[in-house]
Design a protein around this nucleic acid. Structure first.
Lengths: 338, 338
DNA sequence: GAAGGGGATGCACACGTGTTCAAAAGATTG
DNA sequence: CAATCTTTTGAACACGTGTGCATCCCCTTC
C-alpha cells in the first residue's frame, strides 16, 4: 500500500484535489461543510501531507541545518537541545551535522544543507570561521552563529548569539579579589579564539582596576580540554611562587587542573582556589563542587533559533545578541591561606 | 537570483533537461563528450541539485530520523555522534528530535518524521516502547532501536542494537568478588527498564555462582541520575552493616553515590569500593577515577546506522545485535579493608 | 426577466528531478 | 543501396502539493 495523497482523498470525497488542498489548510475559499467532510475523510484514511512535495511547491522546507564541531561536547549538546526544542515548537525540523572541525567535512556539510534547501543555518562554536563563513553566506540563507570563535564577521548576513565574556570574567575576578587573592593565575585556551581573548581581557582589566600587578608567568595556555588543564597546572605549580587562585578558561580545563592538584596532595580550596567557566553538569559533581560561570546554554540555543525564525520571516533585528553569564559560587573557592 | 536548475543548464548547453539529468548522474546513455561538457557548465553555474525534487521523483529522501529522549545526555550524544558520522559517510542526513520522554512530543515527532518521509528511524533509549513502537511501525519504515528499555518487541519490523548487560554485569561482579568483597550492594534504576533488570540479573547470578547469599537489603533503587544515587547511598550507609562494595546501575548514579561518600568522609576505595556503568567521560575525571564498564557508544551508533543502511537496501540481517561491554578498572575499586 | 455580484469549485500550470518510450541519427551488414 | 542495429537525444509524463484564473451556480437587485 502506498502513501495516501490528496488525490486519493479527492477521489473519495468526489471533489478535485485543489479543493482538498484548500480544505486541509483551512482556506476560507471552500464551503465549511465540504471542508469538514474532506478533513474527516483525510483523517480516516490516515493522510499525512508530504513535506517534500509541499517544499517543492512553496520553496520553503521548514528545515534548518545545525553545524556543530561535535555533538559529544556537553556544552554544545545543551545548546542544540535548546535549538531543537524551539525549532520543533514552530514546526521546523533540524538537520544535525558534526564537522569534527575538519575543513573537508565542513564544506561537505554546507553542500548537503544547500542541496536540502534548508531555510537557515545555525553554527555552534565554529573554529574555522575564516574560510567557513564566506562559504556559508554564498547560500543566501540566514545564518546565526553561537559563541563563534572568529572575531570579525564582516558579512551583513551573519548574526550571532554570544555570552558576554568580559563581563563574566570580571565577575569571577571580583569574587577572587574580594576573597583576598592577589596572585591569581589564568589558564587559557589556545590563543586566537575570541572567547579566550575576551575572558583574558576581563582578567587583565580586573587586575588593573584592583591595582594589582599583572604577572605574565601566571598566564599559561591549555587546550580547552582536561589534558591541557592538567599540564598547565603542573606548570603553575613549578613556579617558585605558585598562585593562590586559578581562573580556568572552562570547566574542562578546570577538571584537568583539579586532577593535578589531587596528585600533588594540594587541597582545594584551602591551599588553592579554582574557578571554571561554563557550568557543565560535571561541575556539580566534582570534589569539591566547582565554582564556575553558568552560561544559559539551552537558552542561548533558543535565542539563536528565535533569531533565526525572525530572520526567516523578514523581521529586522539586532545582529549580535549578548547574554550574561552567572557566577555560581560553590566549594572550590575560599580566602587564601595566610 | 534564483537557484539554478537542470533546465538552466540545458538551455546553456543547448540540450534537453533529461540529457542534463543523465549526464550528471553519469549515465552511460549520454555521449561522454557531451556529458563532460554539460558537467563543466553545471560546475561553472554553481549548480547544486535539489534534494527535494529528487526525493519527490525517486521516493527516497536519503534522510533518517533520530529520536532521543534528550541530546543533553552524554551517553546519547556519543551514540548520535556515531550515527551521524556513518549516515553522512553514506550520503544520508539525520533529523534530530528529542522527545523529553514526553508522550505528546513523541507522537509529534513521529508525525513529523512521517511527513518528511524519512527512509528510516533510529530510537535511542526509548522508555515508552509500549505505545511508541506500534506507532512507529505503522509507518512501514525500517526502525532500529538502541538500548531500548522495553523488553518485548513482537514486531518483525523492529531491529535493535544493545549491550550485553548480563555479561558485563557478571564481569563487574567477578572483579569485585575477586578482590575479596562479599557484601556487595547494587544501586539500580527505576524498576522495569530492561537494562536495569539485566544488570541486576548479572549481579544476582554472580552471587549465586560464588555461593554468596543474596541480601535484599543491599539492593536499592535510584533514578539513573546523580540525585537518585546520592539518596540510595545514604540508604545503604544507614544499614547496620553497610556493604564493602557498591555496583551502580550507571555512572550518573555512581557520581551521586560518590558525593554521599565524600560527605560522610568515607574513603573510596579504601573503605568502600565503587563501580559504575557506561564510562562517560566524567568517569575519567572524578576523584578517585571511576572503575566502570565501557560501552562502545559511538560504535553502537555506527552499528545501528549500518544496520539501517542494510535494511534500507533490503539485505537480510540479524534482528538483534549484542555488543560486549568492557570492564575498565581505575581507582575506585580495591580489596576490602579487614 | 436580465444583469450583476459573490461564493464555491475545477482546470491548468508550476516547482525540479527522474524515467519510459519513441524518434532521429549514425553505423553496420547483407 | 536498402535494411537492420546501435547510439544518442528529446518528448511526455510522473512524483504530491499549492495557486492564479476561469467557470459555474445561485442569489440579489433593478
Amino acid at each position: 500500500m502506498q502513501q495516501v495523497s490528496i488525490k486519493d482523498i479527492a477521489r473519495a470525497a468526489n471533489v478535485s484535489h485543489p479543493t482538498v488542498s484548500r480544505a486541509l489548510s483551512h482556506s476560507p475559499l471552500v464551503k465549511s461543510e465540504t471542508a469538514e467532510r474532506i478533513r474527516q475523510i483525510a483523517a480516516s484514511l490516515g493522510y499525512r501531507p508530504s513535506a517534500i512535495a509541499r517544499s517543492l511547491a512553496t520553496k520553503k522546507t521548514k528545515t534548518i541545518g545545525v553545524v556543530v564541531t561535535t555533538i559529544a561536547d556537553p556544552f554544545i549538546a545543551d545548546v542544540v537541545s535548546g535549538i531543537e526544542e524551539t525549532a520543533n515548537d514552530h514546526g521546523y525540523s533540524v538537520f544535525l551535522a558534526n564537522s569534527n572541525a575538519n575543513p573537508d567535512r565542513e564544506v561537505k556539510v554546507v553542500h548537503s544543507f544547500h542541496e536540502r534547501r534548508v531555510d537557515g543555518i545555525l553554527v555552534t562554536a565554529s573554529r574555522v570561521g575564516a574560510l567557513y563563513v564566506p562559504l556559508l553566506s554564498q547560500l543566501k540563507v540566514p545564518i546565526v552563529l553561537i559563541n563563534n570563535q572568529h572575531p570579525d564577521e564582516p558579512d551583513e548576513f551573519i548574526y550571532s548569539v554570544m555570552i558576554d565574556n568580559i563581563k563574566a570574567s570580571t565577575q569571577v575576578m571580583k569574587h577572587l579579589i574580594g576573597l583576598g587573592h592577589r596572585r591569581i593565575a589564568y589558564i587559557g585556551d589556545q590563543s586566537g579564539f575570541q572567547s579566550d581573548t575576551e575572558r583574558f581581557a576581563g582578567y587583565r582589566q580586573a587586575l588593573d582596576r584592583a591595582g594589582y600587578p599583572f604577572l605574565p608567568e601566571l598566564v599559561v595556555h591549555g587546550d580547552g580540554k582536561p589534558e591541557g588543564g592538567r599540564q598547565a597546572m603542573e606548570q603553575l605549580l613549578a613556579l617558585p611562587m605558585p598562585p593562590t587562585a586559578v581562573f580556568c578558561y572552562n570547566d574542562m580545563s578546570a577538571l584537568g587542573a583539579l586532577r593535578t592538584l589531587y596528585g600533588h596532595g594540594i587541597n582545594v580550596p584551602d591551599d588553592i582556589s579554582l574557578v571554571g567557566f561554563d557550568d557543565l553538569s560535571i561541575a556539580s559533581y566534582t570534589y569539591p563542587l566547582l565554582t564556575t560561570v553558568g552560561q544559559p546554554k539551552q537558552q542561548m540555543g533558543r535565542m539563536a533559533m528565535e533569531t533565526m525564525l525572525k530572520l526567516i520571516s523578514g523581521v529586522d533585528i539586532k545582529a549580535n545578541l549578548k547574554v550574561d553569564g552567572e557566577l555560581i559560587i560553590r566549594e572550590s573557592t575560599a580566602p587564601p591561606k595566610s
